[in-house]
């Protein structure tokens, strides 16, 4: 975390001068200098860094240069949108990924399996924004069935604004979440497929077959269960990636989440928002890794057994 804080912080010293974006072209040099002083940009870098770390530990990320509102409030406003998007995409990726992965793993070399694999290849190789724009043109411009941007109507539940409770909110969720999940879905399909193929060759499956256990039970109870363990690890870690990927998806669909906030901040050299966002994402990454490690311990008996033996 400290390293991320340091790297992100030192990057911002090279992104240019925020003051030029803050004041009009009419501003005098004295006024520019005055603002720099106020923002603390003129302090030596190590002092700036200590101030920054000290403040962010207390949850105080400063005030946005452009919007002139506290960054923590801005991020809290934007977080529900991003988390809902990421949640739905992760769900989509896992469910459809596992189903398709199992299918292609069991029915190798059938026509449908090949079609799924070819399409999933497109999912990895096409950049997110192209997929997003293609979906928009198909479903919004040509078919006119889904909205091309925004989050639809949202309902406020306490501090959390949700799009799950209205029809337009759910409709607006479809295109961005599909776009965002495609890459992960491909990943899961291929992983599950490889695992299934490998496990179906193992001795205990062969033995089960020999015992005459039904194919269905072998496939779904014995093989899939074992195949899912690495999937959980990988998808857990990838949720962090989804949050990072959502920057692009949010920009394409004008999704009012943290990613679009960050992009706007980059455009205006709004350092407080940029650094807060980086720290947040790093924090989420670390937390998810931690949680995944723990769940791994509970899910995979081998880890527990090994420890008990030693």
């Amino acid at each position: 975390m400290i390293i991320v804080a340091f790297v992100s912080f030192s990057l911002f010293n090279f992104v240019g001068d925020p003051v030029n974006n803050m004041v009009g072209q009419e501003a005098s040099d004295e006024r520019r200098e005055e603002i720099r002083d106020k923002l603390g940009i003129n302090d030596p870098i190590y002092i700036q860094f200590f101030n920054f770390v000290g403040n962010s530990v207390q949850g105080n990320f400063g005030i946005s240069y452009q919007l002139k509102r506290p960054v923590s409030v801005l991020i809290a406003e934007r977080m529900p949108a991003t988390l809902e998007l990421v949640f739905v995409s992760a769900l989509l990726a896992i469910i459809s990924g596992v189903i398709l992965g199992v299918y292609t793993g069991i029915n190798r070399d059938t026509f449908l399996s090949n079609v799924i694999l070819v399409i999933s290849l497109a999912g990895v190789s096409l950049p997110t924004f192209i997929i997003g724009i293609m979906l928009i043109y198909l479903f919004s411009v040509i078919l006119g069935v889904l909205p091309s941007f925004g989050r639809g109507e949202v309902t406020d539940i306490g501090f959390w604004s949700t799009g799950f409770l209205t029809m337009s909110g759910l409709k607006a969720l479809i295109l961005p979440s599909v776009t965002l999940s495609l890459f992960q879905m491909t990943y899961v399909i291929r992983l599950v497929r490889a695992e299934m193929m490998e496990i179906l060759q193992t001795d205990y499956i062969k033995f089960a077959k020999a015992r005459g256990i039904k194919k269905k039970i072998i496939n779904y109870k014995h093989a899939l269960k074992n195949g899912l363990i690495p999937v959980i690890t990988i998808t857990g870690i990838n949720i962090g990636t989804l949050i990072a990927f959502s920057i692009i998806t949010e920009t394409v669909f004008q999704w009012p989440g943290m990613g679009s906030l960050f992009i706007n901040a980059v455009y205006f050299v709004d350092i407080p928002i940029m650094s807060a966002y980086m720290i947040m994402v790093a924090f989420i990454f670390v937390m998810i890794n931690f949680i995944v490690d723990i769940t791994y311990y509970f899910i995979d008996p081998r880890i527990r057994i090994k420890e008990e033996n030693s």
């Binding site: 924004f129 724009i133 928009i136 919004s140 941007f149 394409v252 669909f253 004008q254 679009s260 992009i263």
Partner: peptide
């Protein structure tokens, strides 16, 4: 709408 393509699609 920040993205040009999305704005024109809309």
């Amino acid at each position: 709408i920040k993205n040009d393509a999305t704005r024109i699609a809309a």
